[in-house]
């Protein structure tokens, strides 16, 4: 464990807590993409299959349980409890255009052609594009609530911090995982446009409103 990875995990934790607070306090899921949350649930389920078979640390297990638990709770809030406030018309990204290519790529490019390894690789590739339905929804509605912007900033920062973690691990431990790094770079690049808007607008107290 290193400071970059710890900050990354804390940023990820903060993102999930911000999202839950937004939903619980406003009792609304307006502006939140249910499809992205379903993709995140798929990512965590696929990646944490070893939750019961390999123990790494209390921290690792607790975080995995928390991430899986909260993402399914988020889906429950979106599609059941606060269903009336879910904006399905704007949440129209065709996720099959993500899952099929990512699934195919996981079969072709992986560290080892073994079931658990391919599923892990699928979760890594899927995570890098899982935010697209959410960003697409914001571009369609033309704006994002400030709290949603904070959620996205924390979520984008988490993988950017993981990139720092991988740089550190390469020099400190000689550790390098090309698949995780490439997917992490793609994932972070997808947020760049949003990071620019967040820093130039939200930091100055304005709302993010894309030219519709």
């Amino acid at each position: 464990m290193n400071i970059f990875r710890l900050c990354g995990d804390m940023s990820h934790l903060a993102a999930i807590i911000i999202l839950l607070l937004k939903m619980w306090k406003t009792r609304s899921v307006a502006g939140i993409s249910g499809k992205s949350q379903i993709l995140f649930a798929t990512v965590f389920t696929a990646r944490y299959l070893d939750l019961f078979t390999s123990f790494i640390s209390i921290y690792n297990t607790c975080m995995k349980v928390f991430f899986i638990g909260t993402v399914y709770f988020t889906i429950y809030l979106i599609y059941m409890k606060f269903k009336a406030t879910y904006d399905s018309n704007h949440d129209s990204f065709r996720v099959e255009f993500l899952i099929v290519p990512v699934g195919g790529l996981a079969f072709l490019v992986n560290h080892e052609f073994a079931p658990l390894e391919i599923i892990w690789t699928f979760s890594i590739y899927l995570e890098s594009v899982a935010i697209l339905p959410q960003l697409f929804m914001i571009s369609k509605t033309g704006e994002a609530e400030t709290i949603t912007s904070h959620y996205l900033f924390a979520l984008g920062s988490y993988r950017a911090l993981y990139l720092c973690n991988w740089i550190y691990r390469y020099y400190a431990e000689g550790f390098f995982d090309l698949i995780a790094v490439v997917a992490g770079v793609v994932q972070t690049i997808l947020y760049c446009d949003f990071f620019y808007l967040y820093i130039t607008k939200v930091m100055k107290g304005k709302k993010i409103s894309l030219p519709a």
């Binding site: 990820h12 790494i56 690792n60 975080m63 550790f175 995780a180």
Partner: peptide, 10 residues
């Protein structure tokens, strides 16, 4: 050299 995969990460 096959690098160890990042399974200890979240």
């Amino acid at each position: 050299k096959q690098w160890p995969s990042s399974k200890d990460e979240l």
